[in-house]
Design a protein around this nucleic acid. Sequence first.
DNA 1: GCAACTTTGTGCGTGCCTTCACAAGCGACT
DNA 2: AGTCGCTTGTGAAGGCACGCACAAAGTTGC
Lengths: 249, 249
Amino acid sequence: MTKPPHAGSADVAAARLRSIPEASVARLAVYLRMLGELAEQGAETVSSDELAAATGVNPAKLRKDLSYIGSYGIRGVGYEIAALVRQLERTLGLDHLRAVALVGVGNLGHALAGYSGFGGRGFPVTALFDVDPDLVGIHINGIVVEHVRSIPQVCAERGVTIGMIATPGPAAQGVCDLLVSSGVRCILNFAPVVLQVPHEVEVRKVDLAVELQILAFHVARKHLAGQDAATVNGHIIEHASNGSGGMLP
Amino acid sequence: MTKPPHAGSADVAAARLRSIPEASVARLAVYLRMLGELAEQGAETVSSDELAAATGVNPAKLRKDLSYIGSYGIRGVGYEIAALVRQLERTLGLDHLRAVALVGVGNLGHALAGYSGFGGRGFPVTALFDVDPDLVGIHINGIVVEHVRSIPQVCAERGVTIGMIATPGPAAQGVCDLLVSSGVRCILNFAPVVLQVPHEVEVRKVDLAVELQILAFHVARKHLAGQDAATVNGHIIEHASNGSGGMLP
DNA sequence: GCAACTTTGTGCGTGCCTTCACAAGCGACT
DNA sequence: AGTCGCTTGTGAAGGCACGCACAAAGTTGC
């Protein structure tokens, strides 16, 4: 393909961004974290085979994923970790901090507010909201909980670009509308409802009950199948879409 | 196709289970929850168009999903909600309670232990584990936290079939091995690591940091694209691809 | 400088998932 | 009974993603 002659100009970067498959984006984030760990351990370079094994994906798939963001590997050697991390962060938009607002400071919301995995990775939780008068006003990790009706004002003041909804189901759509009207264009939804949003807003849903039900399905399947559990190879790996390709020796 | 003459015998059910696409299983769980809400509102039947709109999927896809579990619709009318719910629950393995063990009662784990969405849907959290001496012994929702080393014994006693891991990353693999050695065959992993498991064990991963990074990517994309935001069609809808499952992927 | 080895980048076949479009089936109304 | 309108179930086509396999490109050793 046309090689990127020097640096990715903004145009080139934009063109690339648009064309990265959704499935690859999800994996790029996983590669990035693993690369961070490797860097901490002092590694300078890593091969696609090593990184693939560590993240549980096929090496060819990994190389193809990385090829979407440019040619940052050295044939015969591998990938230079520092450069790759920098480029991944640029691609994933992690070169800026993204202020996050969290609505719903109940059971789950409280845990999310205290989760260190966010702030440490460029997503400082900057605003907390709830409707419960007993919760409004308390501090969590140094952030004061505000009333939901303040969402537009506070989000504008603090430049919030990502919203997380951890309210009970019935409240979620209303909260979502408030966030959208405040200019938030990306939402992570933990409430068990399907949010209706304008087309320019991106919603991702994390549904814990559904995750368990999917597992329950597999429990039932294994149960019904008895345990044929053929004497296949011994290990590996994460993730559902295990082809379970035709058995039949 | 060959219609199920009377009831799905276990054989027929087993054959169907094996052939349901993974992506469809995830959606079936969503349909089931929405059907429950509709039933509460007093609805008797629902058409594929209505249910599809409510769950944010394509009507044809919904019908195909439902066709995997049998022909429970009435042409010209729609689906009888009660019968469909019953069949979905059977298919997803929700006709039995599935005891769940939760390992890691820190920030996130504590919230999960108290999350009512599990017990209310057939997944009673039956055992809690941690290594922290300050946590071992305390009660959460009436369950006492045990030491991780008790996992094999307690899981066997209480018939645990699903494990949830909400530990810090470095501890996750060890905990996973313990669960697997205790007979747990399905694991929901919240720790930011890729678990290595035998092939007969099913792992689903929920990775909150990755979810946010995917959103950040879309923030960056929207930003770079300016707001051309073409005059495309007007609406819609949740969900990128999941794969995931979500997270999952 | 050359040969052997290593590892990337990718063209291509394959299979799964999605979506369209339509025939078949069911109820209601006349 | 017959017709009309509505909705399901599915065949078939298109698109996307995965993974193999190999050429290109770099490094190491002599």
